Every structure is written in structure tokens, then in C-alpha cells.
Amino acid sequence: MNVPVKVYSATEDHDVPLHQVHAADGGRIRYQRTCEVCGQTVAYADIDRAHVDDEGRTVVLTKDDLAALPAERSREIEVVEFVPTDQIDLMLLDRPYYLEPDSTSPKAYVLLRRTLEQADRTAIVRFTLRQKTRLAALRVRGDVLVLQTLLWADEVREAAFPALEDDVEISAKELELAGALVDTYSGDFEPGAFVDEYQAQLRILIDAKIEAGEAFDATAAFADAGEDSGGEIIDLMEALRVSVERSRAARTDTG
């Protein structure tokens, strides 16, 4: 079955963008690619790849060399096998991509989607992306086919912890108490109910510092936020607003 598709990243980064600056004057830090032989700064377009073997010999691989590899020229996503979904170890899951039908008629796309749903199976596929052969799981998410790249088996490290080799005795009472704790916190997982608190607080901190300027003391502001709410930062925005007003008042008095 040939199913033409377009591939799109299924995730996006919402982190507050930060860059490095010189602490003394705020000047932005820039990195340059410098050749250690001639000392010149090299444009990215003029950079090739190289491999150094065990005997110290360097083999330079040009862009044309790499593009000539048969696997690199192929743009096909090859289905290797169909496996029970529960056989895929979650440790192997990597980046997810959405697949969009790339034809005027999505019949083949819908047929594959419904086949996977009916069989309750996940397709294991193989393809080449960015100079690397990749393994991936092809599965259904709603009405869309999702391609999730997988780590190779040898990329997952073994967990060998000496402490776990000792015999540990757990009493029935301890298991009962632990089970009761689990029951207390049990519920249905709703991803939208969770937020990245660090990023949210970072955005508030940036806004507060813009308002107050260099006189703003972040350590004191967050300490006040904890004290005002009995040790819990409940209304961080309000606490920082108060701190900004204090900073303004201090600057006014100084002026």
C-alpha cells in the first residue's frame, strides 16, 4: 500500500527565550566557527563533516558524498511490521510527528488509519531523516496518523543499581498504607491541568523587572510572596506587583 503523506512536527517549544550576555555591560555573547588551521571564521555553508578513525586518519565527507548515500536519497517510510501496541516500551518513544495526506484523495490514508484501528496494532516503520536511519511507531490519534520516532535498543542505558540487588522486606501494613496514599491521589490524567510553573514565574519575573528596572530585587520579591501567603506562592503576580511598587517608591525617594 502506497500512502503519500506530508510530515509535520507535532510539538512546539513555549519556553521563554533567553540568551547569554556579558554580566558587566549586558552585551550579547556571540559564537563564531573558527578554523584551527587558518584561524579564519568559517560560514556554515563552507563546513563539511569528517571522521577520525582509530589510527588518527581524517576522512572528510562533503555534502555531495552524504547526499549520494542510497538511504539519504530515499524519502519513503517503509512499514517493517505490525505489532501489539503494548509491546512498545515507553522508554523508546522519542519525537512525534503528524502525517497529513499528500494527495487529492485521502482514501489510502483513511484505509491505513482504519486498518490500524481495527487491528489494534501499531506499525513499526523505518525511514531516513537528517543523515540517520530511524525507527518509528506509526499509530492513530483521533483522525490523524502519528509517526513517533523510537530510540534504538542500544541507545537506552541499562539501569544497574547495586542498592536494588539487596533483599528488601516490605510488610503488608506498609503496602496497605502506600496503597491508601495512591487511592487518595488517584484520578484521570488531564494534561491541560498542568503548567510549567518555572516558565510562568519566569515570564512574571521578566515583566516585573521591566517595570521596576535594575532596582528590582527578585530574591526579596519571591521571599515576600512566600511569607505573605503562609509559605505558599499563591498569587505571585500580586506579590511581585507590590514589590515593583516598593522599588518605584525607593527610587523616587532616592531621586
Rank of each mutant, 00 (worst) to 15 (best):
residue 1 M to R: 00
residue 2 N to D: 13
residue 12 E to P: 01
residue 14 H to A: 07
residue 14 H to S: 02
residue 20 Q to C: 04
residue 21 V to Y: 06
residue 22 H to R: 13
residue 23 A to I: 14
residue 26 G to K: 10
residue 30 R to C: 00
residue 40 Q to Y: 06
residue 46 D to A: 10
residue 51 H to Q: 15
residue 53 D to H: 04
residue 54 D to H: 01
residue 54 D to P: 02
residue 56 G to H: 02
residue 56 G to C: 03
residue 69 L to Y: 11
residue 70 P to W: 06
residue 71 A to H: 05
residue 71 A to W: 06
residue 78 E to P: 07
residue 80 V to I: 13
residue 84 P to S: 03
residue 90 L to R: 11
residue 91 M to F: 11
residue 91 M to K: 02
residue 93 L to H: 01
residue 94 D to E: 13
residue 95 R to I: 06
residue 95 R to W: 08
residue 98 Y to N: 03
residue 98 Y to E: 10
residue 98 Y to F: 14
residue 106 P to L: 04
residue 106 P to D: 09
residue 107 K to E: 14
residue 108 A to E: 11
residue 109 Y to M: 01
residue 109 Y to A: 05
residue 109 Y to R: 02
residue 110 V to H: 02
residue 116 L to C: 08
residue 117 E to P: 10
residue 118 Q to M: 05
residue 126 R to L: 10
residue 126 R to Q: 12
residue 126 R to N: 07
residue 130 R to H: 09
residue 131 Q to M: 13
residue 134 R to E: 10
residue 135 L to Y: 02
residue 137 A to C: 02
residue 140 V to I: 00
residue 141 R to W: 11
residue 142 G to A: 05
residue 143 D to Q: 13
residue 143 D to G: 06
residue 145 L to C: 02
residue 147 L to V: 12
residue 148 Q to V: 11
residue 151 L to N: 08
residue 152 W to G: 10
residue 157 R to H: 11
residue 158 E to F: 09
residue 160 A to E: 14
residue 160 A to Q: 13
residue 162 P to S: 12
residue 162 P to M: 01
residue 163 A to K: 07
residue 164 L to A: 13
residue 167 D to C: 03
residue 168 V to M: 00
residue 171 S to W: 09
residue 175 L to E: 05
residue 177 L to V: 14
residue 179 G to S: 04
residue 179 G to H: 05
residue 181 L to I: 14
residue 181 L to V: 12
residue 186 S to H: 00
residue 187 G to D: 14
residue 189 F to Y: 12
residue 194 F to S: 03
residue 196 D to N: 11
residue 197 E to T: 14
residue 199 Q to V: 02
residue 201 Q to H: 11
residue 204 I to N: 03
residue 209 K to P: 08
residue 210 I to W: 05
residue 212 A to G: 08
residue 219 T to C: 07
residue 224 D to G: 08
residue 225 A to R: 06
residue 225 A to S: 12
residue 226 G to H: 09
residue 226 G to Y: 08
residue 231 G to R: 04
residue 231 G to T: 14
residue 235 D to C: 04
residue 235 D to L: 01
residue 240 L to C: 00
residue 241 R to W: 12
residue 243 S to C: 09
residue 245 E to Q: 11
residue 251 R to H: 01
residue 252 T to D: 15
residue 253 D to M: 12
residue 254 T to K: 15
